[in-house]
Design a protein around this nucleic acid. Structure first.
Lengths: 351, 351
DNA sequence: CTGAAAGCGCTTACAG
DNA sequence: CTGAAAGCGCTTACAG
């Protein structure tokens, strides 16, 4: 006897029970494979199975999940659109890894985005609780909401190193520190003595790690590096030329999901008719996903995004399973990309 | 008093009720916005809201779904991986549109894949019932499962035209028929009189529509078109040369998500040192998402994937809302792509 | 060996 | 104006 008007509805365990002449819990037992090992006559079992078959029974995942308190859903939260319109977006390789590993572990993926949502809305973030656990992808950490998740014991993993919550936040990061230092060392070996480092204005662990690596290599090699923070608009051809006039022979750019820094340098160079590595060397602290047609391959390093995605899923499912929280933070190595934009320093102009 | 061992768990309406000194259903009423317009004292309302706030209450989407029979989740089912490793995959633009419109309508996206799952497993498909409705993306229709969904009144929409279930399957397709006819007409206008049409071996509505368009234009213009079915392996340089020797001046290739046909032709041409449009014209019945670096832009037509994604979401949410099932099938127009691979026919070789 | 009960966390008539 | 009840469709102890 239902109370709502309902669409032609699927058979339930109750229907099967009625048809087989047993109780509904018995149906659940039989169809659940009887994991508890309860004694069941073969005859009853068969009657139930036949009834289920004849009715075309399909278990309702919602009800099952309510009683079992787990739903085999992994959330993926991106603070910008998961599928941005610039097709070559750097999230994609993470998604490849996340999907692969989630499928391998029998989880489905639930996509959440705060894009378009009002700022700081914790309700938006709370939607993720629908999933058994959630992956987060973004340059920053909304500390209040994440703190609450952690307090509640809600399983979550960040993709990207984050120390905003001290040691509490589980993450899978990449070794930007060593990889960035290597880039500078390669430039030093080629003979560059004076670099400009162009980075985004805002701070994030991903920025701090790159700059730390750069600084350590600068200290090791004795090259000079001027750090320039930009929001994109303030790097133009004139500025680029003034750096070169000051003796800068190589420009190192931070890589971020928006790639503001490197894009600004490239535009300024193109506008000024400057070419890499003839006029100056250009290195990226990272890589560009899906090279833009017409642009040369940037020298830099490859971030193991796919493997990071996989590792993050493994960490998350481990947390969900309540495994001993050993490897709660993980850093994967990057590998160098030779590219086409780095070479020996240009000969200084004659005076 | 719970019976299972539980992680530190979130507050429920029962907890709020206890704290506010009201019944649990009253809490539900207050938090649900009291749509029924039940009388409620402001004081009670406020006590409940305060208690919810102080406990950090978040409704359980699963429980809500069980009683409300809806959960603001839209499924997206892909029969291959949603994020294939070849970065430039044609699903991406669909996903952009789907995400945009889903976000605009307040739905989250639930990703399902049958990739890796055993063939024909209906259980795999049944997972989608967790969502309020589901989008399907794929060349083929598993008729039995889809028929059952339709019988049950489960809301679903295919992206791509499909008539495997007669008129029953809701879809958003693209007008491959007209667009394909236009491609042939443009070739005819350039002077081509003999084409080879290279298509996949297996049949699907997307194939049938392209071929229908091709044939209608062939009939109109009086050009000749030889239809060749390929699985990729059987189109090589020798075969390509023999077509040209027979007087074929333009090759038209079917576009599919795997792009077997066009890839085979391109490889054969490259291997034989043949160039387009100098040695022959090459047109695609569709477009290539994210042009492969180094390959020329193919002549063909653009499929409005993003808009198809958006339209499919709108159709699906309409179905979920039980709107009069008027626009249950929708075909969007494509627009021509000039590209670089089509030109006038080469001069016939001297004999 | 099998049935009846309680519970998962909500919503929605229905009494008072 | 508010509370108690029933129900969504399952699972899992617990009695017999």
């Amino acid at each position: 006897m239902t109370r709502h008007e309902r669409r032609p509805s699927r058979p339930t365990q109750a229907d099967i029970a009625r048809l087989a002449g047993v109780s509904q819990p018995t149906v659940s037992l039989v169809l659940g494979g009887n994991k508890a090992g309860v004694a069941l006559s073969d005859e009853t079992r068969q009657r139930v199975l036949d009834a289920a078959e004849s009715l075309g029974y399909v278990p309702d995942p919602i009800a099952r999940r309510l009683s079992r308190r787990t739903n085999n859903l992994l959330g993926l939260y991106t603070f910008t659109a998961t599928f941005p319109t610039d097709v070559q977006h750097s999230y994609y390789p993470f998604l490849v890894g996340v999907e692969e590993e989630a499928a391998a572990q029998g989880y489905d993926l639930l996509l959440f985005t705060s894009s378009g949502a009002y700022e700081g809305a914790t309700d938006v973030l709370n939607r993720v609780r629908l999933a058994d656990g959630c992956l987060f992808l973004g340059r920053h950490v909304p500390e209040k909401a994440m703190g609450r998740f952690l307090d509640d014991g809600y399983p979550l993993v960040y993709i990207g190193r984050h120390d905003e919550l001290g040691e509490r936040l589980p993450y899978v990061g990449a070794d930007y520190v060593s990889a960035s230092a290597d880039v500078v060392r390669r430039l030093a070996e080629l003979g560059h003595r004076h670099l400009a480092y162009v980075r985004e204005k805002d701070d994030a662990p991903a920025s701090a790690d790159r700059e730390a690596g750069l600084r350590s290599a600068v200290a090791d090699t004795g090259v000079r590096a001027d750090v320039v923070r930009t929001d994109g608009g303030d790097v133009d051809t004139a500025r680029l030329r003034s750096w070169l006039a000051d003796g800068v022979t190589a420009i190192v750019a931070e890589e971020t999901d928006t790639d503001i820094a490197v894009t600004a340098v490239e535009s300024a160079a193109r506008a000024g008719g400057l070419r890499c590595p003839d006029d100056f060397s250009l290195a990226l602290l990272g890589d560009r996903v899906g090279r833009s047609p017409g642009l040369p391959a940037l020298s830099g390093f490859a971030i193991p995004r796919r493997e990071m995605g996989r590792a993050a899923v493994r960490m998350l499912t481990g947390l969900i399973a309540g495994e001993p929280e050993a490897r709660i933070r993980q850093i994967l190595g990057c590998h160098p990309l030779a590219g086409e934009t780095v070479g020996a320093p240009p000969r200084p102009p004659e005076h």
